[in-house]
């Protein structure tokens, strides 16, 4: 039985998998940063529209989003 790990394609795939797996936490943190800013900014924007308090909730939301995003990033970095 030939060892499947000998094939070039299989090895490339293995390398790709390893890299994606290792980049998993970093990707999570990166997307969490943007996602947090977008989500909380969006929530702030909606609250502003509902309560007519523009732009205070939007600004607060963006700021909190930044904090949450960077907290996630910091957690990932410290873990590694």
């Amino acid at each position: 039985m030939p060892d499947p790990s000998d094939h070039f394609l299989a090895r490339s795939l293995q390398a790709l998998q390893d890299n994606v797996r290792r980049s998993g936490p970093a990707a999570t943190a990166g997307y969490a940063l943007i996602g947090a800013i977008l989500l909380l900014g969006g929530v702030g924007h909606l609250v502003d529209r509902w309560a007519a308090t523009s732009p205070w909730f939007l600004l607060t939301g963006l700021l909190v989003g930044l904090v949450v995003g960077f907290y996630q990033l910091a957690k990932t970095v410290w873990k590694i």
């Binding site: 999570t28 997307y31 969490a32 943007i34 996602g35 947090a36 977008l38 989500l39 909380l40 909190v64 989003g65 949450v68 995003g69 907290y71 996630q72």
Partner: peptide, 10 residues
Amino acid sequence: MSMFVRPFAL
């Protein structure tokens, strides 16, 4: 908030 941010990012 992080808990909600993750699915939002997805």
